[in-house]
Design a protein around this nucleic acid. Structure first.
Lengths: 212, 212
DNA sequence: GTCTATAACTCGATAGAC
DNA sequence: GTCTATCGAGTTATAGAC
């Protein structure tokens, strides 16, 4: 009996690194080229292993993609629980949410466009796998806004519009970096400075219309 | 001599519809599936013609894609000349720009994500074909803001940040429609109503911080 | 678990008849 | 200009040795 357990653990330990390497490689390749642009060979190369091994671990390209896509979808909405539950004012909370969000997205600028474009392209995957899973933590946000309206801290507004404004102002700029650089004729560095400046600008834009 | 001219015109007339049909079909298919996800067969089917004819008109998939991509890139920035050159106040102009932009994007919600994701994936195409072409009409916008600052109509601000805010608040919501519906748990109709409401909200958000 | 070799298939592109 | 038929490169997926 002990030997069986030992065999299992040895298997587990040897197994883990390959699986992790594959997931990291797949994430990178799928994000850069999308589902249909990515090649299993690219992923194998990036993981430093053989093509056949990908199928050993994940059976098919589609299964591997679904795994990566769902992980990405979940990552798109940062954990805001601690900010919302803190003792700060609504205004301070919104300020923290915005700058936290902008910071997160600087680390993964390709995530939003990957999720959105693949969502349009594979509604089946999306509906079957993502629908019905745990929802992102926006309920808490909506309740925060509604409570603040009730106790008179802020003007009456549609919480979903506020949320959509925050998301738009935080997510869009990093994903449009190459586009905006082109049309505005500015350098990468110039754009990064704009993003930095936005950590102050965005909260102001969001908060000002809420003040009485 | 007259016969040659006749032959030429007949050729032209017969040719035009097929070429147009192909371009319409290609636009539709490329936007939905991207360069690597689109199949020449899909495009041929959508155009109601044969696969070989695509190559007759556009030589290769890549050439056809470039044509569609460049057209799309140009369409992403609406002609704002007439609004900017009008006799309205800056505030009225911004209001018109926002609602005009939101209207345009409702008609082509897939355009932005198509342009952005393909731009990330094929920087070569982008640099060779789009770079160096006529720039979108944002120079006029920047000058409008700067002039309004100088003559004291609005507070001093970075015109590019104002532009980025407008673009973010107008472009992102329609392109994130499926995503936002999912996380907010609302219907298509509910989201469309939000978009309608935004034609008033967005200009307010942009204008308020500019007022003295 | 990991590899090599190869089967099975998809898709862009071309040849050639009309 | 438009079609049918087909080639050939490139890809996913599997069989089978180690």
């Amino acid at each position: 009996m002990l030997t069986n357990w030992l065999k299992y653990m040895v298997k587990k330990i040897k197994q883990a690194p390959a699986e992790e390497k594959i997931l990291d490689a797949a994430r990178q390749v799928f994000m850069a080229k999308g589902m249909s642009g990515a090649r299993m060979q690219d992923i194998a190369d990036a993981a430093g292993i053989n093509k056949a091994l990908l199928h050993y671990y994940f059976r098919s390209k589609e299964k591997l993609f679904e795994r990566i896509f769902i992980d990405a979808f979940d990552k798109l909405f940062p954990k805001l629980g601690s900010i919302i539950e803190s003792k700060d004012t609504v205004f301070k909370k919104i300020e923290l949410i915005c700058s936290e969000y902008i910071n997160q997205l600087q680390l993964m600028p390709y995530l939003p466009v990957f999720v959105i474009s693949e969502m349009n392209r594979h509604p089946e995957v999306f509906l079957h796998q993502v629908w019905g899973r745990k929802k992102p933590p926006l309920k808490a946000f909506v309740e925060l806004i509604n409570a603040s309206i009730k106790n008179g801290e802020i003007k009456p507004v549609n919480p979903l519009q506020v949320l959509l404004n925050i998301i738009s102002l935080c997510i869009f700029p990093p994903m449009a970096k190459p586009l905006f650089q082109q049309i505005a004729g500015i350098s990468k560095k110039g754009f990064d400075e704009m993003l930095e400046e936005r950590k102050k600008i965005v909260p102001q834009i969001i908060i000002q219309p809420l003040k009485k």
